[in-house]
Amino acid sequence: MLMTRLQQGRRTIAFPKGKLPVLPPRYRGQPIIAGSGESWDLGQMTFSPDENVTYSPDFRMAVSKREDLRRSLEVCELAQGLTKEMKQLFGRSLKLRQVSAGGCNACELDLNVLNTVVFDLSRFGIQFVASPRHADGIVVTGPVPRNMKDALIKTYEATPEPKIVIAVGTCAISGGIFAKGPEHSCGVDAILPVDLYIPGCPPHPLTILDGLLRLIKKIKI
């Protein structure tokens, strides 16, 4: 066992310290805006290669307000941190409860990945907990179809105040490709106030981590 442990080595990435990690050239991140007339709604995009978009390898995309996801040359605002009072409460210990509301399991899996040794989320004081009653906020994935609405609202209500809501993935932000479907899936902010939007289908774990760290002001630029 010790030999295997030695061979495995240290795998945790330095992020957010040091240089930005470089993702492979085919990775589809922040779209490149060509001119001042062009704009893309990151909250509705599936980041598909056959969309008529040029993508950059920049994974930083999380924002605080829904309108900031409508990217153009003029609008390019990344997530703001918590207010001073909220940061005092949650800045060094943020417990989150995850709710999958119609998510396809891709966003869920890439949230889980943050707990692996590579990202080691707990070194920032952020932890996913088993009960909403132990949580400071909820992380929602999926387009919130009809059959999950009640469960989502109940989980939110069971979380003690003050609390935050984080929407992860295109479905959670706008309903994505399920919007206008038969199950009335239109995303989280139609029923709950959202503090952090993390776009992607699914977002790369670094996109999620970057968003969470901006929220607790461990990344400021």
């Binding site: 492979p24 085919r26 990775y27 980041f47 899996l109 699914p202």
Partner: peptide, 14 residues
């Protein structure tokens, strides 16, 4: 990550 290198998405979307 091999899938990411191959086609730009960790789950093979696209």
């Amino acid at each position: 990550n091999l899938l990411l290198t191959l086609m730009g998405n960790r789950f093979g979307k696209g």
